[in-house]
């Protein structure tokens, strides 16, 4: 039985696609069969972040409208052979998605033996975002430690609790996880940024990951290589931890405190 996970946030630009790509890679690297679907119809970007933009022939909307088979539209990742990408349509608008069509695609992926289906939600609370979350079993709510992002994600939590299939059927609702991105331990230490504990307290969610602010994220998207694959980066390790926690492992949070400077580093401003 495939587990459907929506990556959502409400606010744009907080790291949904970066997170979808890295979590998908992380799960696939652990041997899981993973499909990651871009729900941002008209503004597709997951293909660029995954580095498969030139291999998109058919997209999600083509499958829904029966213009190709699901197999034709799934793009197999060149690095991890149990990972597949389903791109969003670049030319259609969000009305091209239908609940029935989305359900059929998710069902076919489930029947095909996928372990995880990641739904990369568009920003906002309109149709694309609604359909991305509607069939989900779990939700990763991506949040920046910043007022508008926190407020918008609380709005999303309200929708997860009411406008999803699990909420409507009363099957215990969608399991929600908080993933903080662009976290700066230095600014938290100086009182300029809300801490993990602050955001956790406001939203009342369990924390599945804290991703530190880093230039590595831009470098990775420039190259079309999900940042989790950059072994040198602490961002990769933070995402790897999040993948472990999603799979039920108990892993303490890392990179949430500023590294203590040694005596000489402080003396010489290193």
């Amino acid at each position: 039985m495939a587990e459907i996970i929506v990556v959502t946030s409400g606010k744009g630009g907080v790291g949904k696609t970066t997170t979808s790509a890295s979590i998908a890679c992380g799960l696939a690297r652990r041997g899981k069969r993973v499909a990651v679907i871009d729900f941002d119809i008209g503004l597709r970007n997951l293909d660029l972040i995954m580095g498969c933009e030139r291999r998109v022939v058919y997209d999600f909307v083509n499958v829904i409208h029966g213009e190709c088979t699901l197999k034709q539209a799934l793009i197999r990742d060149k690095r991890l052979d149990s990972l597949y990408v389903l791109a969003a349509s670049q030319t259609r608008d969000k009305d091209a998605l239908t609940a029935d069509g989305v359900q059929r695609v998710l069902q076919e992926l489930t029947d095909d033996g996928f372990d995880f289906i990641l739904c990369d939600s568009p920003a906002g609370i309109e149709k694309g975002a609604h359909l991305a979350m509607y069939f989900a079993d779990r939700a990763i709510v991506v949040v920046n430690p910043e007022v508008s992002s926190v407020r918008d994600s609380d709005r999303i939590l309200g929708l997860l609790a009411s406008k999803t299939k699990r909420a409507e059927n009363g099957h215990g609702g969608v399991r929600e996880h908080l993933l903080l991105t662009r976290y700066s331990p230095r600014r938290v230490a100086t009182g300029e940024m809300m801490s993990v504990a602050d955001v956790k307290e406001i939203l009342g969610l369990d924390v599945v990951g804290v991703i530190p602010e880093s230039a590595d994220v831009l470098t990775a998207s420039n190259a079309g290589m999900p940042v989790i694959l950059n072994e040198q980066s602490i961002v990769a390790r933070a995402y790897e931890d999040a993948v472990g926690r999603l799979l039920g492992e108990t892993i303490p949070l890392r990179y949430i405190e500023e590294p203590k400077k040694g005596f000489f580093a402080r003396l010489f401003g290193g």
Binding site: G191, M194, S195
Partner: peptide, 8 residues
């Protein structure tokens, strides 16, 4: 108070 506290 620090701005993060105001935000919270």
């Amino acid at each position: 108070p620090p701005s993060a506290q105001v935000a919270k």
